[in-house]
Amino acid sequence: MELTRLKGWLLAIGFVVLVAVPPAVTAMDETFYITLISRIMIFAIAALSLDLILGFGGMISFGHAAYLGLGSYAVGILAFHEITNGWLQLFVAIGGSAVVALIIGAICLRTSGIYFIMITLAMTQLLFFIGISLETYGGDDGLPTDRSEFAAFIDLGNEWILFYLILGFLVLCMYISWRLINSRFGMVIRGCHENEARMQAIGFPTYRYKLLAFVISGSMCGIAGFLLANLTEFVTPEFMHWFRSGEIMIMVLVGGMGTLFGPVVGAFAFLMFEEIISGFTENWPVIFGPLLVLLVLFAKQGVWGLLPKSKAGDG
C-alpha cells in the first residue's frame, strides 16, 4: 500500500494545520476548539485501530469501545489509588487492553460472520456492566480522575501540551499501522481477509495471525482510552457502551474501510458533523443516517477512497 503524491500532500497539510490549531484558536479566543480537536484525534486513533482488523483483516468487531473503556479505566483506577505515573498508566492501559483482546479474540475468532459480530458485541456489553457494578470506582456515575503525570516537561495540565501529546500519539499510531500493513505480517492479515482457505493451503496457520492482529488493534485502541481519560478527566462505563462501538465503526465506514488513513479523516468528518449539526437540532442522527447510507452506496471506500489510488497491486 503506497501513498499517492496527492494523499501524501494531504496528510502533510493536515499535520501542519493540526500543529497550528492551538496557537490559532487561542489567538481567536476560541480555545474550546483545542478540546474538540483533541477529542477528534483520540477517536481517530480508535478508528484507525479498528480499521486494522475491520478493513484489512475482515474481522467485523462490534465491540471496539471495550478497549476505549479499558484504557481509560487504567488511568481512573490507578489514579484513584494514587498511582499517577503516566508511563505506568499507559503501560497498564495497553497491557490490559492486550490481555482482554487476547481473551475476546481467542473466543470469537473461532466463529465467523454474524456470530463474530454478536460475540464481540456481547463481550463488550459484559465489560460495560462490570463497569457499572464497580461501585468503588463510581459505578454508573463514573469516576473523576486526575491527569497522568509524566516528567516535569510534559505537564498535561496544560491543554496545549495535552493536545500535542495526543497529536504525537496519532502520528505514531498512523506510522506504526502503515509499517504493519505493508510488512509480511500485514500481507498475511490482508490475505486472510481475501481468501482464508487459500492462505491455509499455501501454509499459513491463519488463526494465530488473526489473533495477534486483534490484540494489536485492541492495544492501540487502549492508547486512545488512556488519552480520553486524560482529556475528560473522567472515566465512565459509557465509554464502553455499544453505541460508542457503533460510532467508531461509522467513522471507519465514512473515511473508508481498508484505506488506513481514511478512518482518521472519517473521525474528523463524523465528529465535526456531529458538532455542527447538533448545534441546530437534537435529531442530528436523522440527517446523518441518510447521508451515511448515500455514502456507503456511492463511495464504498469512503471519502478517502474517492481519491485516486496508487498503481495497481500496491493498494
Partner: peptide, 13 residues
C-alpha cells in the same frame, strides 16, 4: 509462507 513464520512487522514485503 515457505520461509517460516511471518511475525515480521516492520520491513515492507
Amino acid at each position: 509462507a515457505r520461509q517460516g513464520h511471518s511475525f515480521r512487522f516492520w520491513k515492507p514485503a
